[in-house]
Nucleic acid binder design. Structure first.
Lengths: 110, 110
DNA sequence: CAGTATCCTAGGAGATACTG
DNA sequence: CAGTATCTCCTAGGATACTG
């Protein structure tokens, strides 16, 4: 817990009162970053996020869609063509991410 | 994942480059809040953090101490008297927490 | 008071294989 | 291409009991 190593999670449970914010899964932050420069397709995301497998990426994307951080647009056809794009909410979250990242850079001893 | 419910965790894995920030355990954020107004003893913390058990609180505190977010001062004697206090680093983290909390308040639909 | 010591469980996450 | 379906593993975190 509370380390600066491998896994990066930031706990906001006690922010103000209930219900608190959760962006705590392993890949949401990375997805936010990947979509920062515009919409991307499933496979493109999977490629940029080195290490995710389809199942986990799907779960992450579905959750983010449900929370209105991104939209999923199925352009139909075969082979399929699906695009993911940030919403305004999703985009605004990146600012929070940046704040925290700045803090990390500043306070990371090594 | 990526919800606004019960559990509050904020993923910073992809912040800048490696190694990323981790404040992601369940109680660190709450401990930060509890110590905001000054040092507290183990039992006092445990009481304010409704729901932690001693084992988990100890783990959390040890990790935060290792990361220099707080200090542990054993005043000795019997019964024991141990105090936990935020460091400057720990205190500065609260600002980040606040940023994220403000975001949550602003974007929480319900 | 301030912890250890044990045991146990839920679920996040990965590997692998398959499909419309 | 964009996913499902399974199975398995790991560990954060909780319950309970005990101690210097």
């Amino acid at each position: 817990m509370a380390t600066f190593d491998e896994a990066g999670v930031f706990d906001l449970r006690e922010c103000a009162d209930r219900p608190p914010l959760r962006v705590g899964d392993k890949w949401s932050g990375a997805v936010l970053r990947c979509l920062e420069d515009g919409p991307h397709r499933f496979t493109a995301l999977k490629a940029r996020l080195r290490g995710v497998n389809a199942k986990v990426l799907t779960e992450t994307l579905r959750a983010m869609e449900r929370d209105r951080w991104l939209t999923r647009t199925d352009h139909g056809g075969n082979p399929p063509h699906v695009e993911y794009a940030l919403t305004g909410t999703g985009r605004s979250l990146i600012g929070v991410l940046d704040t925290a990242c700045a803090w990390a850079r500043e306070h990371q001893a090594n």
